[in-house]
Every structure is written in C-alpha cells, then in structure tokens.
C-alpha cells in the first residue's frame, strides 16, 4: 500500500514536471517548474529503489538524505511563498518570506546540518530508518518536519478562503485540494509527537498530503489552460 502510494506520488509529480516543461522553456513561471523538479527529486529519494543507488553515488553515508532534507526546505520555502501570494494572504507571505520566515528557515537548516554531521550514519538507509533510535537523527528528522508543518499551517487558511472565494468549480477544487493537503501536513507532526500516527498510517498521511498538493497545483494549471481566450 505504502509503496503504491509512493510510486503514484512520484508518477504524478513527474507527470506534472513533463507537462510544465514546454511553458517553462517559453519562460512562463520558471520557478514553478523548478519547484516541480525539486518535488520530484524529494519524492524519488523517499523510495528505497531510488534512494539506495543515489546514495551510493554520494559516498554511501546518507548524504542523499541530507540532500533530500535541504531540497525539501528550499522547495517548501519557494512554493509556500508563491501560494501565499497567489491566494493574497499578506500575513502568510510575511510568515514565510518575511524576517520571521527567513529566521525559521535559517535556524532549521543550521540545526539539520549540525544534527546530521554530529551523528555517524555509515550505511545507506532510506529515510534513515536504521538510525531512527539515535538521538541526533531523531532531532534531525524532526527538524525537517517542523518546517513542513510550519509552512503548511501558514497556508491552510489562505487556501481554504481562496477555495470559498473562487467562482469556477475548477478553481475551488484546486484551492480546496491544496488546503486539505496542507491541513494533513500540518497535522502530521503533532500526530507523530503525540504518537497518534506512527509507521504506516503516518506514511499514508504524508503521501496523501503530497498527492493533494500536487493535484491542487495541477488543477490550477488546468484552470489556466481553460482561461477565456479574450484576455
């Protein structure tokens, strides 16, 4: 079940990437294309069949996982800022791109680097599953999720409001998909901390949230393609 969801998420992300390629070449919203590329990398690196060979190339000491965390951080920063701007949430934009948001990213990135290099992880392991009992890795894994939960929490309300405000069904569906995805993302961390969801349920929630966000973004693109020609 988990593996099916993982590959589905990867396929959706990759599909969206290929779909956006032509317009990215024409120079339309190139950063969105890079977001999709980063997302595809991040989802790919969560799958054992891709992670292990990739990590071997990077020395086999789980640098690939560090890379995954930093990719996610950058991806979330760009994407969340754009979504907050798209749904016209000045508060959201400030919390993500403003001084507060930048401080949060900087602190978390520094914490991730320190935690990773303070703990030896000599053998390739997807998601660092082998080392999850090490205190350093527990902190390292938690820090990555903190930022995801942070930006997701910033975006739940703006996207939900956007969903209520939109006139067309496809726009409403897009915004609500995003909102549901962010809600799941924001809830995942507290659920894991409180031990309400661990193991497989946590994986399912995590990939469902990514799937919702990817579908939401794809629907925005669908709505754009169907725009009236006279503008």
């Amino acid at each position: 079940m988990t593996i099916v969801l993982q590959w589905t998420a990867l396929a959706v992300c990759f599909g969206a990437l290929v779909w956006r390629l032509p317009s990215a070449i024409k120079g339309r919203n190139v950063s969105m294309f890079w977001c999709m590329a980063l997302l595809t990398v991040a989802v790919g690196l969560s799958i054992p069949d891709i992670y292990v060979p990739a990590d071997k190339l990077l020395g086999g000491v789980n640098i690939a996982n560090l890379l995954l965390r930093l990719v996610l951080l950058v991806l979330l920063f760009i994407l969340a800022g754009k979504i907050a701007a798209a749904y016209k949430s000045p508060v959201g934009v400030r919390m993500i791109r403003g001084p507060v948001g930048l401080a949060v990213v900087a602190v978390l990135a520094a914490g991730i680097l320190v935690a990773f290099f303070s703990t030896p992880t000599p053998e390739s392991s997807t998601g660092l599953n082998m080392y999850l009992h090490e205190p350093g890795i527990m902190v390292y894994a938690a820090l990555g999720r903190v930022y995801q939960a942070y930006v997701a929490a910033c975006l739940v309300v703006p996207t939900f409001r956007g969903g209520l405000r939109s006139r067309l069904a496809v726009d409403r569906a897009a915004a609500l998909c995003l909102s549901v995805g962010f809600l799941l993302m924001a809830l995942l961390l507290p659920m894991q901390v409180l031990r309400l969801a661990t193991g497989t349920p946590a994986y399912v929630v995590s990939y469902l949230s990514i799937l919702c966000v990817a579908v939401g973004l794809a629907l925005v693109w669908v709505s754009y393609l169907r725009r009236p020609v006279t503008r």
Binding site: N29, M32, I83, A86, Y87, G162, R167, S223
Partner: peptide
C-alpha cells in the same frame, strides 16, 4: 474582483 483573484493565482502558480 473574481477576475483579479484568479489572475493572482494564475500569475503565481500557473
């Protein structure tokens, strides 16, 4: 206003 809302979404995300 509807059009403006939609344009903001398209400009940032489409």
């Amino acid at each position: 206003q509807d059009i403006e809302t939609q344009q903001a979404v398209w400009e940032n995300l489409a």
